Computed example of a mutant assay.
Amino acid sequence: MNEGMLFLVQTLFSLYIMAIVLRIWLQLARADFFNPLSQFIAKVTNPPLRPLEKVIPSRGRLNLAAVVLGIAVSVVAIYVRVLLVGANPDVLALLIIGVRYFISIVLQVVFWMLIIRAILSWFSRGGNPLEYVLHQLTEPLLRPVRRFIPAIGGLDLSVLFVIIGIQFLRILVGM
């Protein structure tokens, strides 16, 4: 029973943190706000985020309130996981592990967006609104890599190199 509850809690928290990460990323990339994915992310994250935005100002395109919310939800997720295991949580350790967990989820979201974009590029012709947002989100990551690694025989290897870099960072974060 405890393992099932642990899985359920971890999955629900991870999905919500992913939504917060997408909210931050959509704003950083200035992605189309009227896209159905953007609208869904905004509706899911607005209830806790609106009050925080009144207290914590944004820095340019970076929504600091969303970053604080993401880290806070990550800390709560780790806290609940520790309680379900039956351990005694240390506040400083919770904060450090929560930040690492948030960074890990950021890297995980970027990884999966790149994978989805690569797979869609094999089959889709570009008319899908989801594909348009994926392009808006991932292109700022891929463009700098393309300057150093041009397409070889018509194959764009920039996605592969960015994915390798993300996996390296995930190993460094250790989550």
Rank of each mutant, 00 (worst) to 15 (best):
N2E: 15
L28H: 06
G174K: 06
I24M: 13
A72N: 05
S124T: 01
P57F: 14
G153K: 01
V99P: 02
S124L: 04
P48M: 04
P129E: 02
P47Y: 09
K43H: 13
G165F: 02
F148I: 07
R147Q: 10
S104R: 14
F102R: 10
G86S: 15
A87G: 13
G174S: 07
I116S: 02
R50I: 07
R147D: 08
W25L: 09
S74P: 11
S121Q: 14
Y79D: 07
L22N: 09
T11G: 07
L141D: 00
V91L: 14
N128C: 10
V82C: 12
L52W: 01
V106E: 01
R147Y: 09
P57V: 12
A66S: 14
L12Q: 07
L62D: 13
S58K: 14
F34N: 08
R30N: 06
P140L: 01
L28V: 08
D90W: 11
L95F: 13
V133N: 09
G174R: 07
G165Q: 03
G126Y: 13
N63M: 02
E131P: 06
R146C: 00
L107T: 00
Q136W: 01
V145D: 03
L107K: 00
G86P: 12
G60W: 15
I164P: 03
I78G: 05
G154K: 11
L160W: 02
I164F: 07
I97Q: 00
P47R: 10
P57S: 12
G126K: 13
L107C: 00
L37Y: 12
V44W: 04
W25M: 07
M113Q: 04
V99H: 04
A151P: 08
I56F: 03
I166V: 05
N2M: 15
A65H: 05
V82H: 12
T11D: 08
L94Q: 05
Q10M: 11
L69C: 05
L12Y: 07
L83W: 15
P36A: 11
R81S: 13
E53D: 11
F123R: 03
R50W: 05
G165N: 05
L142E: 00
V106H: 00
G127P: 04
V110N: 06
G86M: 13
I163E: 04
I96T: 07
L8P: 03
R61V: 13
R81D: 15
I24R: 09
V109P: 02
L107N: 01
G127S: 09
D90T: 12
Q10I: 09
I171K: 10
I163R: 05
M113I: 04
V85A: 05
L114M: 10
L84W: 06
L8R: 05
L6R: 15
G127N: 10
V9N: 04
M1R: 14
V67K: 04
L160H: 01
Y79I: 07
V99F: 06
A77D: 13
L15N: 09
L107V: 01
S14C: 15
I103D: 02
S58N: 12
L62P: 11
F102Y: 15
Q39W: 08
